[in-house]
Write a protein that binds this DNA or RNA. Sequence first.
DNA 1: TAGATTGTTAATCGATTAACAATC
DNA 2: TAGATTGTTAATCGATTAACAATC
Lengths: 218, 218
Amino acid sequence: MKQDKISEAVVRRLPTYLQVLYEFERREVVTVSSQELGNELGLNPAQIRKDLAYFGDFGRKGVGYDVLNLIGHIRQILKLNQKINVALVGTGNLGHALCNYNKYSKDNMKIVAVFDENVEKIGKKINHLTVQPMSELKQTVIEQQIRIGIITVPDFAAQAVANQIVEAGVEGILNFAPAVLRVPEHVRVHYADFTKELLSLAFYLESERRNTDGSALD
Amino acid sequence: MKQDKISEAVVRRLPTYLQVLYEFERREVVTVSSQELGNELGLNPAQIRKDLAYFGDFGRKGVGYDVLNLIGHIRQILKLNQKINVALVGTGNLGHALCNYNKYSKDNMKIVAVFDENVEKIGKKINHLTVQPMSELKQTVIEQQIRIGIITVPDFAAQAVANQIVEAGVEGILNFAPAVLRVPEHVRVHYADFTKELLSLAFYLESERRNTDGSALD
DNA sequence: TAGATTGTTAATCGATTAACAATC
DNA sequence: TAGATTGTTAATCGATTAACAATC
């Protein structure tokens, strides 16, 4: 195949492919079939083959995919071979958690600057990073070639922070605040809104707590 | 409409509807049309009407939806009118962040117990909750009627923790670890995996950083 | 009544899956 | 060669959108 416009659904599956491929790598598996990948992820093998074929012919007929090779390709597709600098705004518990996550990442994404509106937080250290005031955002983004901004402020502050991040010239935003952001077209926003996942999970709970009168279905 | 089986896509949109409805409520708006909701959320009005119609006839022709009334209905659908107790496993920064989030929630979901495998963490206080050992999980789940478990442990530990949560009798899991969990059919797993969102965001960045030789497109 | 907006059916669009020739 | 598995086309399935009668 190669080219066509790639759908979002496809792109969103790539990181999970990468994730299980890392696992296969760790187990020193050399070759993997779409069947095996599908098993691991609960996906249809045809879908995996089709997804990968959008980007190139990575497999070998009758054999499967070379694990290391495929990892390389997906990393390339996701641009994880180049360093991607990230700024984080909002140094609450969630912000702290994400800064720490930094350390475990084998990807080239790295939080290189941290900001907060709260004067009391400014100057504090989080790991080796010093919390900066928002007024320094734009200059830091330029100097450090920051391309992605993470928003971990309360929801009422999210839009204002997004505006400043956009104005600073960032290309993508990962928003943890439960709020829909309005940004110009050239900036991409992804949402990491666990409240949505948590509330929708409740829908699938059994309607009534099982009670003790014995009348309930199983 | 009313009934049919409801697709996941529909259910996942309900919390966002709720979110903007809360916003309208705050602004003391009485009535809202699918048009206005769509504007706010970047969704097609027909989709919103259709989504809501799965659950009942909540609107009034020529008028729209009563904000308070619709909030009530969606809360009911998502089971947010009953208290839903939640247990959290893994008291790292992320776990802490989620425990705090607790306070802001106007929903009836509440983290009522916190667990960690690490002996050093046990007995520590997080807000008013005391970190318990995993060995107490099952009994606590039963005693406190806990229905949802949140996993915020490192990815390598996620499956083992999931097994224990399932064994304890929980109905749903929200997993923050970047790992695919295997659980029995009657347990529902939602993923709150921001790494997926972060890595897929990179795909949409411009291929090359703009350079300084002036040859790049704008 | 005239204008607005729902609920729903039909049309469209897109994504997933099945099937299979190509080939390692 | 025989068995396995890809890449891709065609078939299916499902979700989104348009359109409109019903009606507030």
